[in-house]
Design a protein around this nucleic acid. Sequence first.
RNA 1: GUGACUGUAGCUCAAUUGGUUAGAGCACCGGACUGUGGCUCCGGGGGUUGCGGGUUCAAUUCCCGUCAGUCACCCCA
Length: 401
Amino acid sequence: MFKGALPGFRDFYPQELAERAYVMTTWREVARRYAFVEYDGPPLEPLELYTRKSGDEIVGQLYNFVDKGDREVALRPEMTPTVARMVAARANALRKPVRWFSMPQLFRYERQQKGRLREHFQLNVDIFGSSDVAADAELAACAVDIMRAFGLTSRDVVVRVSDRRLLHAYLSSLGVPDSAIEGVHQVIDKLQRTPHDVSAERLRALDVPAEAVEQIVHIAELTLDEIRSRLTGSAAENAEEFARYMEYVAVLLGGDDSWLSLDLSIVRGLAYYTGIVFELFDRSGEFRAICGGGRYDSLLASLGGADLPALGFGMGDVVLSELLRAKGLMRASVAGADVWIAAEESTPLTAVMAEAARRRADGQSVEYALRPQSLSKQKKAAQASGAREFVTLSNTDARHG
RNA sequence: GUGACUGUAGCUCAAUUGGUUAGAGCACCGGACUGUGGCUCCGGGGGUUGCGGGUUCAAUUCCCGUCAGUCACCCCA
């Protein structure tokens, strides 16, 4: 007995598929506004593509197996390695900056929970070959314009922005040793959902100076000026760049600066981020992150490809759809036919079929009752189907049909 | 992988401290009625109560296991 899809996988009935299509066409439409062009890659990749970047422990999170040719393979859990390979292979031939997007279905082997399944569709938007914060600003603005396209406002969603370099410089200014940075990142990443005293305890365990612990626990509330006042040299330049970034995003959003919020507690799990990183959240804090991304300038080189600066973001369909439904903004429904053709019960079915054929050849979407029925019955069926127009063949039509 | 809670029809739920043939609304199908925007009435299909054991004269109800779901942890593209 087959009952339901595999755990963490979804059946898309027509209504759900309509919603998915609505989300994906909106993604595509906004991405094109920003002159990103679409690409795709294989859903199945060599396992090594992921272990080389993330180490063997990642295998536990992957849908992987050995194929009939004895190859270790995995369903793609993310798009970045694939696109990095594709760009690297033609790095010299591609016009820079490369502005690409994709909407792959991604897979992850782990127990499902709210907003996180074993399979989802994710918009990936990336820029390769630009090291200026203008590129970072384009990404953030694009993500925000997607929110706008769905009818969401800055009262619904906030973009929390951080910068790996600023964070590192700030932590250094507090006396945090480089050896502790990674551990401190992990604590900071969990600040929002961890009691302060627990975070403080973890920080002390990492040999963070006592006076720095209190500062780090409240790191999310820092303003750019407060951070800037502690920095000198190249770090101070980073702060200036960050200010320019914020200005660019506001301009790209038509002068609206209400979306972005500096928040150094935004770390992003991935170690490969090197600069500005950001995440989109619903303001109420009810859902997981809607979107996340940032700059990963050294990733392409580390994967053995071209040494191109790179940045990008990913936005999954699961959390976004949950949010849209909660806000009453999921504007998707199954489309009915253009026209429903009815006829008296005594009319031969072939007359209706002939009319349907004529209209279908003309490009119309046509439905009709597949057996003779009373007109009232047909009318009800037509209404239930959502057909936009209801036409009744007269007996004259039928004869001419 | 760990833990907590949950599991009756497609959906939302019901079934008196364990007690006859597990019910209802919605949905679906059929029919009737109404010359109109999904009205009303009649009828119908659909459940080995997630699955497998156990206790009992008797289990939807109690116990164990398993599977699945929800939430959290781990992890986070």
